[in-house]
Amino acid sequence: MTPLDSLPLWLAAPVAALLVIGSTLTVLGAFGLAHLRSFYDRIHAPTLGTSWGTAAILLASILAYSWVQERLVVHEIVVGICVMVTTPVTTMLIGRAALHRDRKEGAAGVPPSRRARGGAAKG
């Protein structure tokens, strides 16, 4: 028996729904990561998990624990802020690394660099 069992049904239903939505979005993202053909398609897949996948699960936790502890529990927001701020940085850098490597190898289907290298890439 956990304290979560004391939730009333009207609150347990949205918490359960948010948990299901969040985990489903994350697994769809991971499925896309495993399934899609090209790298530039695959880079879109994990953003499902990092946007509403994370947000839904954090919201579920906020709702549930605010009821259990009888005060507003919002420390989950820190994880949300952390994920929201850090994911674009990693995604951009991985994307740029892939672009750089593909251009260096002269792979087909990659747009050419707009300028010669040097002074670049700091943006």
Binding site: Y40, I43, H44, T47, L48, T50, S51, M84, V85, T87, P88, T91, M92, G95, R96, L99, P111, R114, R115, G119, A120, K122, G123
Partner: peptide
Amino acid sequence: MIVTATPGTAWLEYDAETGVLLLH
């Protein structure tokens, strides 16, 4: 942050001189 957090668009490269953004 906006472009990357929205699934379906990915920010790949930004050229600071010409201000052209490469989006996937």
